[in-house]
């Protein structure tokens, strides 16, 4: 049964032509890949494009996979984050789809029509969306993908200390914005005056 195999084995079986192995990889990782892409791009349509591209690359590059060299999820999340950030840069956050049903990407305008609790969540979602790019990626990997600091640092190809510094700066900025209560200002570079984004 494909469901019993580890990722490395499924990749090898995918290369060998077992369609069930690729289907199992999709079943296992589609949700987390799309979830990360959705949070990082801000739009469902772009997240779908990113997700399809990630699995296309997985399919095409599977023959080069070296079992044991890294976790497949690290590679999947890294490619997802890179593609999503590229999409964000190309389009800019101004065109983010506004879904009032989704507090994670809600805006202040949407939140004004919601209950108070939803307003708070909407402001937090908007504040996260307004973080500088790498801080936003760090927060999203932690809270959407549920990665440990070490795992997320590997995805972002930075040291654990550098990743934790991104988290510290991100949360400091989130607290400041939530305390201010104002709408975050976003820019194409993802910067919101949060004091830098380097890791």
């Amino acid at each position: 049964m494909a469901a019993d195999f580890p990722d490395d084995e499924l990749v090898a079986r995918t290369v060998a032509g077992e369609s069930a192995a690729f289907e199992e990889l999709v079943r296992r990782h589609l949700g987390s890949t799309f979830g990360l892409a959705r949070r990082l791009t801000g739009t469902e349509s772009e997240a779908e494009d990113v997700t399809q591209e990630v699995f296309t690359r997985l399919w095409l590059k599977a023959p080069a996979w070296r079992p044991g060299a890294a976790r497949l999820t690290t590679w999947l999340y890294r490619v997802t984050a890179n593609l999503a950030v590229d999409a964000w840069r190309r389009r800019g956050p101004a065109a983010v789809e506004l879904d009032p049903e989704d507090p994670a990407v809600g805006t202040v305008a949407a939140a004004e029509e919601a209950l108070e609790a939803d307003q708070e969540q909407a402001r937090l979602g908007a504040a996260v969306a307004a973080l500088p790019e790498r801080q936003r990626t760090a927060v999203t990997l932690t809270y959407t993908s549920g990665l440990s600091n070490a795992e997320a640092a590997a995805v972002m190809e930075v040291s654990v200390k550098a990743f934790e510094a991104l988290l510290v700066r991100a949360k400091r900025e989130l607290r400041r914005r939530l305390a201010d209560g104002g709408a975050p200002e976003v820019s194409r570079t993802g910067g919101a005056g949060a004091g830098g984004d380097s890791a």
Binding site: E23, F34, R38, R39, T51, Q52, G125, V128, Y143
Partner: peptide, 22 residues
């Protein structure tokens, strides 16, 4: 609050089939 605000989004209908066509 971050855990709630950043919950993974549900996979839209049709995406799984599209990926399986890769």
């Amino acid at each position: 609050r971050l855990h709630v605000a950043l919950l993974p989004a549900p996979v839209p209908p049709g995406l799984r089939e599209a990926v399986l066509q890769v």
